[in-house]
Structures are given as structure tokens and as C-alpha cells.
């Protein structure tokens, strides 16, 4: 084990942490506004990847254009989900969980029905390696990380400075008080679903060329995103999620290389379960909102 191996592990960890962040951000935004754990969120990621595959491989669109188009399409799906399902179950735990499980099952099997079992691959746009501090990295991974960073920063700026973004934060802080200030709850939750779905779709589209597409690919990502937001504190809008995702990405990358893939995930889950027990408000000390 030399410095280069460690650097490679760090960079792999950061890269997967950054894409995880895209999924986790949406999940935590939806939780913060609608108080719903959307277990179908991983499916939005999966659908994003399939959408990009469909647009770029079958329809022949440019890869980046396909990602943008997929983000729009999945955001539209998210709006439908919010309008007809989630809005009715705002802050009611059991029915909302059951509905999201229903959606998850439905989306998974409809993709299976629609595209069949076989392997789907998105042709990687970037080939080759870059050398950074003596470590060679795949160019594709670096670009994925860069795009994810740009998207996350864009969302953070939006939440911080744009008026609709500020409305989202206000509702997350106190829904009743912000309603009294004239913020429309429904449009805020619609906007949240748009952002969340688009980010998940982007993550799917970005990671599509790295992995094979599989109709079950959303669930492991969903679990990891859940872990990330648990680590960062549920419903804490930004800071916690960013740290949480990076930590999950790094721990996962190190543990996978050092002790093997299955035990890595077991360790990850155990750590999270432990954190939930001693500090349900998240490891990074974000406030717990009920």
C-alpha cells in the first residue's frame, strides 16, 4: 500500500460520494418539505439512466443533450407523483411509505417489462486516463465528479439566493409560518420534487456509462442515499447531506478495497445503525425536526 493507492481510493470515494450527493440531496429535500421518505427515489435515478440510454443509444441524441432531456422528463414524472400521490400523504408516515414502496415496485417492473432482461450499456463518451499527482484516473470518473459538483453548487446557490429557493428553506423550517407569509405549500413541494427528480435523473445519466443498466439498480443507491442523509441529519437541507455523502463514499471506497465488497456494506450499515441509535439527529449535529 503506497500513497498512490490511497490517493486512488480517496478520489474514487469522492467521485462516488459526489454522485451519491445528487440522489441524497433530492431525498432530503423531499423529506424536509413533504416529510415523506420517498423509497421510490432510487427508481428516479434508475429511470434517469434508462432515459439517457434510450435517448442516446436508441434515438441517437448527443449524450449531454440526452441527460438534460432525461432530467426534464423525470422531473415531469416527479411532478405527477407529487401532485397525485405525495401531496395527499404529506407527513403521514405509514401510508406515504407504503405508497412509495408501491411506486418503487411499479416503476421497477414496468422498466423490466418495457426493456427486457438483457444488458443495457451507454457508450462512454470519454475514454482514456488523466494523471494526477502520479496516480492515473479514468477521465470519465473525473468528469462525472466535476459535473456533479457543478450541479450541487448550483442547487446550493439556488436554495440560498433565489426567491423560490428561499421559500423552500422557509417551508423546511416552519411550514405553518411560511404559509402565513403567503408561500404556497403546493408550489414549494412541486418545486422540491422537480429539483429532486432532476438531480436523481442526472446522477443516473452520469453513472450510466460506468455501470451496466439494470432495473434493480436504484435500490442500492437509495439505501446509500438514505444512509448519507441519516449521517448528515434527516431533513437538514444542505450541509449535512454533503458531508454525509462524502463520508459514505470514502468509507465505502476504502472498505471495499481493503476488506472486500460485502463486508464493506455490512460495516457501513452497522455504523449507520449505531449512529441512529446514539444520535438520531445525525452525526454532524444538525437539528432534528419532527
Amino acid at each position: 500500500m503506497n500513497a498512490q493507492d490511497i490517493l486512488a481510493m480517496v478520489i474514487n470515494g469522492l467521485s462516488s460520494g459526489l454522485t451519491l450527493m445528487l440522489v441524497a440531496l433530492g431525498l432530503t429535500l423531499v423529506f424536509g418539505i413533504l416529510h415523506i421518505i420517498n423509497l421510490a427515489h432510487g427508481e428516479l435515478y434508475m429511470l434517469g439512466a434508462y432515459c439517457v440510454w434510450w435517448l442516446s443509444e436508441l434515438m441517437g441524441f448527443n449524450y449531454w443533450f440526452a441527460i438534460v432531456l432525461a432530467m426534464i422528463l423525470i422531473a415531469f414524472l416527479g411532478v405527477l407523483m407529487e401532485r397525485y400521490l405525495f401531496r395527499r400523504f404529506r407527513a403521514i408516515m405509514v401510508p406515504s411509505l407504503v405508497v412509495s414502496i408501491g411506486l418503487m415496485l411499479f416503476l421497477q417492473s414496468s422498466i423490466l417489462l418495457g426493456t427486457g432482461m438483457g444488458d443495457k450499456e451507454i457508450e462512454p463518451v470519454f475514454h482514456g486516463q488523466v494523471t494526477f499527482l502520479g496516480t492515473s484516473l479514468s477521465l470519465g470518473r473525473v468528469i462525472i465528479g466535476a459535473v456533479a459538483t457543478v450541479l450541487v453548487i448550483a442547487v446550493i446557490l439556488f436554495l440560498k439566493y433565489a426567491r423560490p429557493g428561499q421559500a423552500i428553506r422557509a417551508v423546511a423550517q416552519d411550514a405553518e409560518a411560511s404559509s402565513l407569509q403567503g408561500i404556497s405549500m403546493n408550489s414549494v413541494s412541486r418545486l422540491t420534487m422537480i429539483i429532486g427528480s432532476a438531480l436523481a435523473a442526472a446522477a443516473g445519466g452520469l453513472l450510466g456509462p460506468v455501470f451496466h443498466l439494470d432495473y434493480m439498480m436504484g435500490f442500492p443507491v437509495l439505501l446509500k442515499a438514505l444512509l448519507a442523509i441519516v449521517l448528515g441529519g434527516m431533513g437538514s437541507v444542505v450541509g449535512g447531506v454533503i458531508l454525509g455523502s462524502l463520508v459514505i463514499g470514502l468509507v465505502h471506497s476504502f472498505a471495499t478495497t481493503l476488506i472486500g465488497p460485502e463486508i464493506a456494506e455490512i460495516i457501513l450499515f452497522l455504523i449507520i445503525a449505531f449512529i441512529l441509535l446514539i444520535r438520531p439527529s445525525g452525526f454532524f449535529g444538525m437539528e432534528l425536526r419532527t
Partner: peptide
């Protein structure tokens, strides 16, 4: 394909 039935069933029941 069974989840194709279960999913909507759950949503409808809820």
C-alpha cells in the same frame, strides 16, 4: 412482473 400488480394495488389501497 408480479410487482407490476403489487405496486398499483398498494397505492390504490392506500
Amino acid at each position: 412482473f408480479q410487482p407490476l400488480i403489487y405496486g398499483p394495488l398498494l397505492v390504490i389501497i392506500m
